[in-house]
Amino acid sequence: MSTFAKDYTDLDRALDEVRTLIEEWSSEQNSASAPTPETIRYTQLVLHEWIANLLQHADFEDRSPLIQIRLQTENRHVTCSVTDNSEGFNFQDQLPSQDEAMEDLPERGMGLRIINACTESVSYTPTNSGRYRFEFSIPADHDPWLSMLF
């Protein structure tokens, strides 16, 4: 099992860097067990949507933001966590169910749906140390086309 680990205090920088760093990390993996290019693209998209979500909506009160990204792969399966020091929010309340109707061609509100479609499991929960952790997994054979958005 190989782990990618990176901490950021500048979320804009995280957004700019993480896509390239994950691509580089992936290319260093053993080709027999490395995630597929599609799995890496879903991972990059989910991380982008999540960090963008934190940048736009998270309440860090008077603290400097800190996020810790941990990414692991085993047998092409990806698991990832992003721990942050924000005040958090109730993720399940915000997460639309797959069969919930959506307005046609919406301008907002697609981010969590995209995250949900790209992942097999996803959660955002408090940690024992008073932080919040976003976790998701993407199996090797994940087929997000089965998850209807429109």
Partner: peptide, 17 residues
């Protein structure tokens, strides 16, 4: 283009509408 996110796509929907 390396990145198209949900907000970016939403702005294209806005153009289409």
């Amino acid at each position: 283009t390396e990145v198209l996110d949900s907000t970016g796509l939403g702005s294209i929907f806005s153009l289409y509408r």
